[in-house]
Nucleic acid binder design. Sequence first.
DNA 1: AAGCAGCATTTTATCGATAATATGACGGCG
DNA 2: CGCCGTCATATTATCGATAAAATGCTGCTT
Lengths: 334, 334
Amino acid sequence: MVRMADVAREAGVSAMTVSNVLNERLPVNEPTRARVMAAVAALGYEVNLTARNLRAGRTDTVALVVPSFHDYFGEIADKIAPLIEADGRHLVLERTSASAEHEMAALSVARLQFYDGVLLSVVGLDRDQLDRVRTPKPIVLLGERDVPDRFNHVRLANEEGARLATAHMIEHGSRRILALGCTFDTAHMMSSDRRIGWEHALRDAGLDVDARHVVPVSTYTSAAGRDALLDVIASGLPFDGVFAVTDVIALGAIAALAESGLRVPVDVQLAGFDNLDMARFVPPGLTSVDANHEGVAETAVGLLRRQMAGWTGPAEHVVAPVRLVVRGSTRGGA
Amino acid sequence: MVRMADVAREAGVSAMTVSNVLNERLPVNEPTRARVMAAVAALGYEVNLTARNLRAGRTDTVALVVPSFHDYFGEIADKIAPLIEADGRHLVLERTSASAEHEMAALSVARLQFYDGVLLSVVGLDRDQLDRVRTPKPIVLLGERDVPDRFNHVRLANEEGARLATAHMIEHGSRRILALGCTFDTAHMMSSDRRIGWEHALRDAGLDVDARHVVPVSTYTSAAGRDALLDVIASGLPFDGVFAVTDVIALGAIAALAESGLRVPVDVQLAGFDNLDMARFVPPGLTSVDANHEGVAETAVGLLRRQMAGWTGPAEHVVAPVRLVVRGSTRGGA
DNA sequence: AAGCAGCATTTTATCGATAATATGACGGCG
DNA sequence: CGCCGTCATATTATCGATAAAATGCTGCTT
């Protein structure tokens, strides 16, 4: 491997001069500069980023740590990447499998050394565990958990989104709306916050909250959503609307409804959450709560960028606003 | 930041002993070991991976470099991650935006230093550009490009997959099958290889190949697939089947057909390629060519693992077999 | 009792770049 | 003509861990 010292010898200068040419730190005379550049080209030299990182403490790389590379996270990652690259940094993704252990590992001193900053999508860690994380590295947390004040945090207006979706289906005639993938377990905040929004909408409309309408799923996959809804259908519990806690689960619900001969939106209205790309295309179009991925990405990257630039003021806790995108799966749609 | 030397001082030993305890390289007496471990715990020490990387030339990290984090690549990444983790290594994803420039950068000496090996999904680079890459790092190429012999490479049986899907639709009555997202441009091998398979199926059945049936798309997105198919429908060109070059495009086709009042599979049969998770759930179920993601992942990781273990034999070029998964979007389905 | 094998631990040198500091050449000024 | 400031470049020390070599101790052999 060709080192800076090799380039220096080739150009008849010191390593430091090569460094100065490449990093434009101290001025270098034009003839010298040209000789160095020629030597770099001749030898095909490229800087050793590991060595630079060790000495200079900078990697020009940001990590986005997500539970899985799939679906929602893949989409948001593609929104975040250009924003990071616009600052001349790289974005890399790491995966936690939604386990607290892996999330903790991602925040360990050891892993953080590789990055100038980290965007962490928190799913498994609770407030106490996060409170134990002591690191000087810029971090922005994403996701629907409760986090200590000192972390910058961007989350969605879960309750409001669920309320909007549910109220919309009520307005168009649904009276017995399942909360598919929701839960009473407050530890899982995404699905319990969204359940609370669903309850609000029911109460606001003077409808009863029936605990049997809260249908948990074993995992946040389409397959689990489909299975859970098929079970409900088999049980004979009547319903005329489904609020699915995510679009991925809503897709499973679409499959279950189609298999069971229930028509959307005539027999059952359906709404999801996240407004994934797919929601536009799955017939008859999936009504979904849109959290403005790009806005979330910009906010999160903005907070991170500020920290990486050395800002040390108090952390911010942003709740990203949501809106309902109405499509054919509910009766207000086209 | 607490260093190994700090731990050594705390435990009353040399840094080398700490290193030996943590890495289990040379044996260390139990009492000493215990003192070191206590000091590690007391100070909350964690190894500096950058320093280790510089000295030992090892990162225990593998990069998967993909065009985008979306859809197909997100799914395959989630298959690859556990295999890499099983060897005690980390997987990180990098993104190239499908540009040759970014792909080249990912293969640059500079970026490679961060990783013990790289899985690169080639989309933009051609054979000549790849031939210029000189690096001793283990690399496995994925994807449908033509690559120099010296690289390990895993690709799919594109032609065969397209042939299977098309033949299946012919068998069930389609006579005018569009090749949506395919192209005559042989530079883009995925879409031209799949077009060739489509042609084979037509010829085998004694049908004419009509160039108007090859419908290009502007990008490999559902939106572009939908738009392209809507244009065909508006043009009045008759067709009774669609082979979509990917499931993502097929999803766009489903939307276009639904909007146009064409019934799947009664009026038009439809088949995709990739067998994404989504294909099972989108009504009426998307018939798709399955490339066995897990098998591809295992093959690719196996080739990479072998190189990382020091094997230097000739590179392998694996063509992963495919099979057709029949669902409701074609008339052979349920 | 001298010598040596075997083991635990320490010392030294190094990975490659760069921040901080030092050196040296040249021009301007009194 | 001698002193000083300025600018370009070189030297030195360091980031933190580890491979390889050196040290030193114990106990065994003859």
